[in-house]
Amino acid sequence: MKGIGALLVLGSAVWLGRALAKPLRRRVMLLEAWANCIGFLIPAIVWQQTPLPTALSDAARAYPILSKVLNSITQQLAERLIDVGTAFERALVEESALRPRDRQLLGDMAAKLGTSATSYQSDMLRTTEALVRQVAKEARGEDLKQARLVESLISLSGLALVILLL
């Protein structure tokens, strides 16, 4: 019985550590996916001149981690009531792993998306892509370290509790 109890406590600690670290890991994945997604949008907008809702739908298929947000944006645009900036803002609210700074970056891009000639769109998207990549790089360094630390600390706490109880 003691052994089973110890395993349960240890398992719970590992699970809790992972759960607490999940948003940190997810933020890194999201930011990297957004950087790639913006890179995907550049030729779609600049070269193919694909209508924005179609380009976003294509991006949703290419980047499954962003599909919920991107599909939400295209659905809102299809209702023909709001602008792109508002649609992004509403959709990104659902993504809790992102920080205000990340949302600000994507929101600034959304406000200008589709509103100018291809050359300006290209410059704006490339700049945003570089900024998001930079933030993603920082997040990979800091957030992943923090995620590993959280996991280790909670797992070790669980282990310490087991040792004490035994």
């Binding site: 209508p51 645009l77 792109v84 509103t115």
Partner: peptide, 16 residues
């Protein structure tokens, strides 16, 4: 501006 953006599917770059 909003009506125009909606009419062009938020894709003014394709309508310059």
């Amino acid at each position: 501006r909003r009506i125009l953006a909606i009419l062009v599917d938020h894709s003014l770059y394709a309508r310059v």
